[in-house]
């Protein structure tokens, strides 16, 4: 199996390290050729404005959307913004899932925190999610399944092959979210 990680900016190496523990090879996706022969795709945490800019400027928009629609894709924090069709109530032309997401909704870095998340739908208990200048999911279509909650907020969504987490599983030693993604 080969996992592509969008390689423009952000916490890329963290995923590479973890996936290598599973014996899975990775490739940093920066141009068209990189999309060939990948089985899964990760859009990492980092700055969504930077990823967005270069996906478009490097002419990858169409290929990115086509690929993401067909193979398992996981967006983390900034990555979940890239994949959502609505960002801050505006249409996002890179989006592939009917989610309305609000950037930096918890505030600035001072409001970043580690929270207990309820992922009982996947049989995962006592999960601690790292939220960093996280976006907030403010709406999504009925056919999307909410897999994780922090209090009354949805922080983990999935529809078929598309998965979003507004928290960062790559920053903890807990591998249960990876196990789930790799099983899709």
């Amino acid at each position: 199996m080969k996992v592509g990680i969008l390689g423009f900016q952000g916490a890329i190496e963290e995923h590479e390290k973890i996936l290598s523990e599973y014996g899975i090879s990775t490739i940093r996706i920066k141009r068209k050729d990189d999309f060939q022969n990948i089985d899964k795709l990760i859009i990492p945490g980092g700055e969504s404005t930077v990823m967005r800019k270069f996906l478009i400027e490097y002419g990858l928009k169409k290929l990115f959307k086509e690929t993401a629609a067909h193979i398992p894709v996981w967006g983390i924090c900034a990555g979940s913004i890239i994949l959502s069709k609505k960002v801050d109530d505006k249409f996002n032309n890179l989006g592939i899932i009917d989610v309305n997401i609000k950037r930096n909704a918890y505030g600035r870095q001072i409001n970043s925190s580690i929270k207990n998340i309820d992922i009982s739908k996947l049989g995962i208990s006592n999960y601690r999610g790292v939220f960093i200048r996280a976006p907030k999911i403010i709406g999504f279509k009925d056919d999307i399944i909410s897999l994780g909650m922090y209090e009354d907020e949805h922080v983990f969504l999935q529809k078929d092959n598309i998965m979003l987490t507004t928290f960062h599983p790559e920053l903890t030693d807990d591998r249960r979210i990876y196990n789930h993604f790799l099983s899709i």
């Binding site: 900016q9 952000g10 916490a11 980092g46 870095q109 790292v130 939220f131 200048r133 920053l171």
Partner: peptide, 12 residues
């Protein structure tokens, strides 16, 4: 959470 925040700047 602060150390982790710095990781989000990587490759930038």
């Amino acid at each position: 959470v602060n150390k982790d925040f710095a990781k989000m700047f990587k490759n930038g």
